[in-house]
Computed example of a mutant assay.
Amino acid sequence: MEDIIAVDNLVKRYGDMVALDHFSLHIAPGEVFGLLGPNGSGKTTAINCMLQLLTYDKGAIRLFGEDMKPSRYDLKRRIGVVPQNVAVFEELTVRGNIDYFCALYVDDRRRRQELVEEAIAFVGLEDYTKFRPRKLSGGLLRRLNIACGIAHKPELIFFDEPTVAVDPQSRNSILEGILRLNAQGSTIVYTSHYMEEVEDICTRIMIMDAGRALATGTNDELKAMIGTGERIRVEVDACDDEALAALRALPCVLGASFDGTMLEADCGNGAHNVADVLGVLAARGVATGRIYAEPPTLNDVFLEITGKALRD
């Protein structure tokens, strides 16, 4: 099946700064694709180039199998955008805002009325249709933002950090809504700094930095790219330097530490890591309590690939 998004060797410069450095991205129809990167990595620039909101210096962008150009309004009508910053009109009610944005894509008033009602029900704003945005909580504002972006039933939807600063209930509602949109046939491009969200909903993930794609794959494929297999944590009363040295000498152990109550061992990929660690502790007479074995998280992968240095 032809890619719904095909970006090849995209270059975008701002003077001497290269924002996108031969960036390529391919997304198949029906995916929930996570686009991750530190602040300033080029995510928003890449999306704005795809939407033809920015010009670029080099490369090719095809959406729905066709060349994307600023004048391709036929393609733009098939796209929805939910920006990070809530973009609604304070002068309009909830219903008025959704109707306004839907009207940008749908001329027929009767059809638009049906779509607005469906969008209101989809995000659960039936009790707030006459409210102005200033009267809504942060979670309700986010849901209104989503309704404005998806009312015209787009085939491709870009979500840019849609759960920033919302409570857990609102976050859960938003994520469930995104999965429902995907189940109804929409392809999703999702950016977020909440790694657990990306792990939960995305079928494939790209990690980018400095305008380049560094790694792409499923959640499991990305975790297999780094050396860390699992982190083993063991409650112990005491652990001397000899026991720590014996642990660090194990081929599977990448590093070990003890904070006075908890022993931690970072291990590489292996089938018997826990047994090997416990065997060393038993041989050294270390009494053990509760044992935790945690697989690597997407956050571990992200930091391994992009580094741990602070970003602006």
Rank of each mutant, 00 (worst) to 15 (best):
V94P: 05
V82Q: 07
P29M: 12
S24D: 15
V106P: 03
N9S: 14
F89K: 01
P38L: 15
Y73A: 02
F23V: 09
R77S: 10
E90H: 11
D16W: 00
L63A: 11
G96F: 06
R95S: 06
D67A: 15
G65E: 02
T55E: 15
T44V: 05
I61M: 09
T45R: 04
R95Y: 09
R95H: 14
E90S: 15
P70N: 05
L104I: 08
V18Q: 06
F89N: 02
C102H: 02
E91Y: 12
D74N: 10
S24N: 13
D99G: 06
G40L: 07
I27V: 15
R72D: 04
L75V: 09
G65N: 04
G42Y: 08
Y73V: 03
K76F: 14
R13P: 00
V82L: 09
V11E: 00
N48L: 10
A46F: 05
R77D: 02
N48M: 13
Y105R: 13
H26C: 11
R62C: 07
M68F: 07
T45L: 04
E90T: 11
I47L: 08
I27G: 12
Q84F: 13
L51A: 10
L53Y: 12
L54H: 07
L75N: 01
L25Q: 10
G80R: 08
K69C: 03
K69R: 15
K12T: 00
D57T: 00
L54S: 06
A46V: 06
E31M: 14
G96P: 08
K12V: 02
A87Y: 04
P70R: 03
E31C: 09
F89E: 01
G30D: 09
V88C: 10
E66A: 14
I61Q: 08
D99C: 05
V18I: 15
N39W: 13
D67F: 02
T44N: 13
K12N: 03
Y100R: 01
Y105C: 11
T93A: 07
P38I: 14
G40E: 05
L53S: 04
K12P: 01
H22N: 15
A19G: 09
I79W: 11
R62I: 03
A103C: 03
A60M: 03
